[in-house]
Deep mutational scan, measured.
Amino acid sequence: FSITQFVRNLGLEHLMDIFEREQITLRVLVEMGHKELKEIGINAYGHREKLIKGVERLI
């Protein structure tokens, strides 16, 4: 299971460039909250919320 699959499953594949540029893996994403996601350029609250909720389902 990769970050690419995870992001695609959430319908947020347009954010993949950010994850690749910042070298974010699923392991790193698990540790990130709204503040960190915003810092790397994910400005939409809804997108950040989707990512965080998606990660919570993985754990």
Rank of each mutant, 00 (worst) to 15 (best):
F19N: 01
K35L: 07
Y45L: 09
V30H: 09
L58A: 06
L29E: 00
I52M: 09
I24V: 10
F1A: 10
K50Q: 12
G41P: 01
K38D: 07
M32T: 01
I59L: 09
Q5N: 10
T4D: 14
G46N: 13
N43F: 10
E49H: 10
F1G: 09
T4C: 11
H34T: 02
E56W: 07
N43T: 14
Y45A: 11
L58W: 13
S2N: 14
K35W: 06
Y45D: 05
E22R: 11
V30D: 02
G41F: 04
L58I: 10
L15E: 01
G41S: 03
V30A: 15
D17C: 10
L15T: 02
A44D: 15
M16W: 06
L58R: 01
G41W: 03
Q23A: 13
R27S: 13
F1C: 14
F19Y: 01
H14Y: 13
L29C: 02
A44Y: 14
L12I: 05
E22A: 09
T25N: 09
I3E: 01
E49L: 12
M16V: 12
N9C: 14
K53M: 09
I59R: 08
I24R: 02
E13W: 09
A44G: 11
I42D: 01
E31I: 09
L51M: 05
K53P: 00
L37I: 03
A44K: 14
R8K: 14
L12F: 05
I42E: 01
K38V: 07
G33T: 07
G54W: 07
G46S: 15
M16R: 07
K38G: 07
F6G: 02
R8Q: 14
E31Q: 15
G33R: 07
L12Q: 00
H47G: 03
Q5D: 14
I40C: 04
N9T: 12
F6S: 02
V30K: 14
K35I: 06
T25R: 04
Q5W: 09
I40D: 01
Y45Q: 10
L51A: 02
I40S: 04
L26E: 03
V55K: 04
E13M: 13
E22I: 04
H47K: 05
G41H: 04
M32K: 02
E36H: 04
K35Q: 11
A44R: 11
V30S: 14
E36Y: 02
E49G: 04
K35S: 11
L29Q: 02
H14S: 11
E49I: 13
E39V: 07
E36M: 03
R8D: 05
R8C: 10
T4Q: 15
I40Q: 03
H14R: 08
G11M: 05
E56S: 10
L26D: 02
L58M: 11
L12K: 01
T25H: 05
Y45H: 13
R27A: 13
I40N: 01
E39M: 10
I40W: 03
E36C: 04
N43H: 14
I42P: 02
L29D: 01
V55S: 08
E13R: 07
M16Y: 06
K38E: 14
N43I: 15
N43V: 14
I3K: 00
H34Y: 04
D17M: 10
I52T: 02
R27D: 07
E36W: 03
I59W: 08
L10R: 01
N9G: 13
E22D: 06
Y45E: 09
I42C: 03
H34V: 03
L26A: 05
I42H: 01
G33L: 04
H14K: 09
L58H: 08
V28T: 13
R48Y: 06
I24F: 04
N43R: 12
E22T: 06
I52R: 05
L12D: 00
Q5F: 07
L37G: 00
G33H: 07
M32P: 00
G41L: 04
I3R: 02
E49R: 10
F1E: 10
L58S: 03
E22Y: 10
L12P: 00
K53Y: 07
R21N: 08
G46V: 14
M32W: 06
R8H: 12
L26N: 00
L37C: 01
L29I: 06
E13T: 09
D17L: 11
L26T: 04
T25S: 11
F6P: 00
F1T: 12
N9K: 12
R21C: 06
V55R: 05
Q23F: 07
H47V: 15
I24K: 02
H14P: 08
G46K: 15
K50C: 10
N43W: 11
R48F: 05
T4M: 11
L37N: 01
E31K: 15
G41N: 02
G46R: 14
L58T: 05
F1K: 06
F1Y: 11
S2H: 08
F6W: 07
E31V: 13
D17I: 13
R48N: 01
L26R: 02
I18K: 05
V30Q: 12
T4P: 08
T25V: 05
Q5H: 12
F6I: 06
V7T: 08
N43C: 13
T4G: 14
L10Q: 05
